[in-house]
Computed example of a mutant assay.
Amino acid sequence: MSAALLDKKVVVVSGVGPGLGRSICLEAAAAGATVVLAARTESRLLEVAAEVEAIGGTALCVPADITDEAAVQNLVTRTVETFGRVDALVNNAFSMPSMKPLERTDYEQIRSSLDMTVLGGLRMTQAFTPALAEAKGSVVMINSMVLRHSEPRYGSYKLTKAALLAMSQTLATELGSKGVRVNSVLPGYIWTDQLKWYFGEIAGKYGITAEQVYAQTAAKSDLARLPEPAEVAKAVVFLASDWASAITGQTLDVNCGEYHN
Score class of each variant (00 low, 15 high):
1 M>D: 14
7 D>N: 14
15 G>S: 10
16 V>E: 09
22 R>W: 06
22 R>D: 04
23 S>P: 00
24 I>S: 03
26 L>W: 08
26 L>Q: 08
27 E>A: 10
28 A>Q: 04
29 A>N: 08
30 A>C: 10
32 G>M: 13
32 G>L: 10
32 G>V: 09
36 V>A: 03
41 T>H: 15
53 E>Q: 15
54 A>T: 14
57 G>M: 13
60 L>E: 09
67 T>L: 09
68 D>S: 11
79 T>K: 08
80 V>K: 00
86 V>H: 01
87 D>E: 04
91 N>A: 03
92 N>W: 06
101 P>S: 13
103 E>R: 15
110 I>A: 07
117 T>F: 05
117 T>M: 00
119 L>P: 00
125 T>K: 00
135 A>W: 02
135 A>D: 04
138 S>M: 07
138 S>V: 08
139 V>G: 02
141 M>K: 07
143 N>Q: 07
149 H>E: 12
150 S>H: 10
157 Y>M: 01
163 A>F: 01
168 S>V: 06
169 Q>E: 14
170 T>Q: 10
170 T>L: 04
176 G>D: 00
177 S>P: 02
182 V>P: 03
182 V>I: 06
186 L>I: 01
187 P>N: 07
187 P>R: 05
188 G>Q: 01
192 T>S: 08
192 T>N: 00
194 Q>V: 12
194 Q>P: 03
196 K>W: 02
197 W>N: 09
199 F>G: 04
201 E>Y: 09
209 T>G: 00
209 T>F: 05
215 A>N: 12
218 A>D: 07
218 A>W: 04
219 A>Y: 11
223 L>G: 08
229 P>V: 03
235 A>H: 03
240 A>I: 02
241 S>R: 09
249 G>V: 11
249 G>W: 11
254 V>K: 12
257 G>E: 10
